[in-house]
Design a protein around this nucleic acid. Structure first.
Length: 475
RNA sequence: GCGGGUAUAGUUCAAUGGCAGAACACUGGUUUGUGGUACCAGGUACGAGGGUCCGAUUCCCUCUACUCGCCCCA
């Protein structure tokens, strides 16, 4: 379970050297400080830590079938719902996120990977997608495209959080955004889309929580009301929430401290203080949801951790045996494009945490998708055959026959063993004799029968056997 | 940021105050050019620093990492 810290060993390690370098490493905290003084000169004599950075991980071949499946399901829904893919840089000016996500949010205040470049720019690894996509939308004048504009994006996002199950500092999200339409039917359609994706992945026991936090107008009024209410209960709040009174009042509603929850339970709710427009929007949104037959829950305390949201907000939770994960979330952000300098454009979007989707998929034994593997193995024996095998490999590949091999091995025995473990149906064997004759042995791995054929007929024969095997090997 | 647990081979796990073991995996072999099973052989590990001790992988302390929970989120 627990991974030990591992160090790349030099083949010629002397105990003394090792000790020395390790000691240097042990003084990492100190080393960091000096490194700063040295203008971050890389310490090449430090041992290489054989592990990824904290909260980051490798997704190994064994897990890829799940990722393949997610990619397949996503790309299908992307098409069906009329989204177009966009890819934006992983790094942006930090200001973009600070301005859009907002100061006072956890993401900006403590979870952002930000740093200065050599050129002196203040940049950050994206903590979410929407800001980048909004930026691209404005920059490329997408406002002239026919509305609505639906954009899909996927890739890693970064949050300097404390890792735990299903929470990584580098995790991957799939993100859907729709620009240029304020009709609440789109809010509902996005939720439908989310539900479809989850359903297609086989994920069950999902709960949709929805709320409306109003537009910039009524939200402000509501916030004032909430602030004055909370001010009156100030003494009953936790220290964090006392700070939030100034920085981010809405979030107090979301605090999990008992005393704050008590205060929040009788606090005014945003849905009761919406302006007529927002009220209608929310009401219609819920009516559309009802049409979808989707189990949802109105959570008046759902406020989201990003400041750009307006009106509809929602989160998607898996709930099973006590452990709860947020699988995704999103909402409307009608004011963001304008606030970043674009044309006044309504928009809505949501993100799904793919790493978490996969946790859920594994839990319910959902389908995964393995890429098809070669059913033919090419074994060679002897120098001449070895030389010919490369070309043979390419010829087969040109004929659409995928071939596995183990060219680096000499003995036929070990090659056949490898072939067997790969589970191929046919092994082609070319030895010294065959190489001279221009022939090759075709061995059926299931029946163990083999015959010698000429090179010209090889591709056809292989195809023929594969076809018949496909029928026979319907195990 | 707060609290709990853990750290031994590629992996999953043992044992031990005095040569560190297994299983699986890996590589090769069991007569010369034929796989699955069986048998044999081989390589690889005590996270780091300090303390106690004749001697520490084992006991103690510190650090680091991993992990679980809280916070927050995807």
């Amino acid at each position: 379970m627990a991974k030990a810290k591992k160090v790349l060993k030099k083949s010629n390690k002397k105990a003394a050297n090792k000790k020395k370098s390790v000691r240097k490493f042990a003084g990492k905290a100190k080393a960091k400080k000096t490194a700063k003084k040295d203008k971050l000169k890389p310490k090449i004599e430090e041992p290489i830590l054989l592990q990824p950075l904290r909260g980051m991980r490798d997704i190994l071949p064994g897990e890829q079938p799940y990722w393949n499946q997610v990619r397949r399901v996503l790309s299908r829904s992307v098409q069906e719902y009329g989204f177009q893919r966009i890819d934006t840089p992983v790094v942006e000016y930090a200001n973009l996120f600070i301005r859009s996500v907002g100061e006072g949010t956890d993401i900006v205040d403590k979870e952002m990977y930000s740093f200065n470049t050599k050129g002196g720019d203040r940049v950050a690894l994206r903590p979410e997608f929407t800001a980048s996509i909004a930026r691209a939308y404005i920059q490329h004048g997408m406002n002239v495209l026919p509305k609505p504009i639906k954009l899909f994006s996927t890739g890693p996002v970064y949050r300097y959080d404390r890792p735990q199950e299903g929470r990584y500092r580098e995790h991957r999200q799939a993100n859907f955004d729709i620009f240029g339409e304020m009709d609440p039917i789109l809010d509902a359609q996005l939720i439908q889309l989310a539900s479809r994706v989850l359903g297609n992945l086989g994920i069950k026991d999902v709960q949709f929580q929805v709320n409306s936090i109003g537009c910039s107008e009524c939200r402000k009024d509501y916030q004032d009301l909430l602030t004055s209410y909370l001010e009156s209960k100030r003494q009953k709040l936790c220290q964090k929430c006392k700070d939030r009174l100034i920085t981010n009042t809405l979030r107090i509603l979301d605090c999990k401290e008992d005393k704050c929850m008590q205060v929040a339970s009788s606090a005014p709710q945003s849905v009761d203080h919406l302006c007529p427009e927002c009220r209608t929007h929310f009401k219609n949104f819920l009516e559309y949801l009802d049409e979808l037959d989707l189990p949802y829950l109105i959570n008046p305390r759902l406020v989201r951790g990003l400041n750009y949201y307006t009106k509809t907000v929602f989160e998607i939770w898996s709930e099973k045996e006590g452990k709860k994960h947020s699988l995704g979330g999103g909402g409307r952000y009608d004011g963001l494009i304008k606030s970043l300098g674009g044309e006044d454009t309504p928009a809505i979007g949501f993100g799904l945490g793919i790493d978490r989707l996969i946790i859920e998929m594994k839990r319910v034994n959902a389908k995964s998708y393995k890429e098809s593997r070669p059913k033919v193995f090419l074994a060679q024996l002897g120098d001449l055959a070895k030389k010919k095998s490369l070309k043979l490999f390419a010829e087969l590949e040109k004929n659409g026959i995928l071939v596995a091999e183990s060219f680096g091995r000499g003995s036929l025995k070990s090659q056949l063993r490898t072939a067997d473990r790969l589970g191929v149906e046919i092994t082609l064997i070319i030895g010294q004799k065959e190489a001279l004759d221009g022939t090759i042995i075709v061995k059926d791995m299931i029946s163990s029968n083999q015959e010698t054929v000429t090179n010209e007929k090889l591709a056809d024969i292989v195809k023929k056997i594969l076809k018949s095997n496909v029928i026979v090997s319907k195990k």
